[in-house]
Amino acid sequence: MIVRVLDIGIAGLLLGGIYALIAVGLTLQYGVARVLNIAHGEFIMIGAFITWSLYIIFGINPLLSLAICGPAIFTIGFLLYRTLFRRLRISSASPAAFEGSSMLACFGLLFIIQNLAILIWGADIKGYSYLAFPIRFWGQTFAANRLITLGFALAIGLIFYFFLTWSRLGKAIRAAAQDAAAAELMGINIDQVLALCFGFGALMAGLGGTLLSMSYKIQPTMGLEYTVIALIVIVLGGLGSIPGSFIGGLLLGLVGSIVTYIQPGLSLVAYYLLFMLLLLAKPTGILGK
C-alpha cells in the first residue's frame, strides 16, 4: 500500500515539476508584469523545437540545450517587453485596459510564432528518445528522463527562488509584484524590472520546453494546452506568488496522478474542478494573502 502511494505520489511530482516551472514563468509575466500572455505556450514550443533541432542535427545533449535555449528565449522575451508591451503599458488608460490590449497583442504573437514554426519545422509531430530507460528504486520503476526533468525543474525553481530572495534585482521584482506604482516611487526602474520579469518568464517557458521535449512529442500547435495549465496553476498558487505557483504546479500534478489512478477519464475534469472549488473557497490561492 505504501509503495503504491509512493508510486502515485512520485508519478504526480514528475508531471508537476514541469507544470511548476512553466507556471512560475507565467506568474512572472501575468502576476508581476500584468501581461496575460496567451502566447506563453509558444515559448515552450520554441524551446522544445530548438532542443529537438540541436539534438537531431548537431547531436547536442538536450540538457546542454538548456544553456542555449534559456538565454536565447530570455532575449526574445526581454526585447518583446521593451518594444511592444512597454509601449502598450504607457498608452493604456488603466491596468484593465492594459490587460485587454496586451492579451490582443499576445494573441497576435501566438499566431505569428506558430505560423513561423510551421514554416520552419513543418506541422508534423516530432520527437526523439533520450534517457528512455527505467530506473528502479523502492520497489517501483520510474523513467530516467522524467526523473532528470523533475530534478532540473526543482533545481531551476530553487535557484530562481534564491535569486529572488537574495539579489537586489530579485528584491526589485518582488517589490514590483506587490505594488508596481509604489516600487516606482521607491526608485526602482520599473520598466527595466518588468522587462526582466517578462524575459525571465519566457526563459522559464523555454527551459520547460526543453525538458518537455525529452519525454513528450512536440508539434507547433502544442502551446495552447500548456498555457491553459499554466493559467490554472498560477491562480491555484495565488496570483503573483512565485513559490505559490511552484507548489500549485506540483499539487496539480499530484491530483492528476491520483485521479488517473482511480478513474483516468476524469483526470482533466479533476484539474478544473479543483481549480474552481479552490477559487470559490479561497479566491486568493494557496499562498495568496
Partner: peptide, 17 residues
C-alpha cells in the same frame, strides 16, 4: 477497459495497472 481523456499527460498508471 478504461477510457482516457484527449490531452492526458501521463498514461503510466494505466500501463502499470
Amino acid at each position: 477497459k478504461k477510457s482516457y481523456p484527449p490531452g492526458i499527460k501521463d498514461l503510466s498508471p494505466l500501463l502499470k495497472e
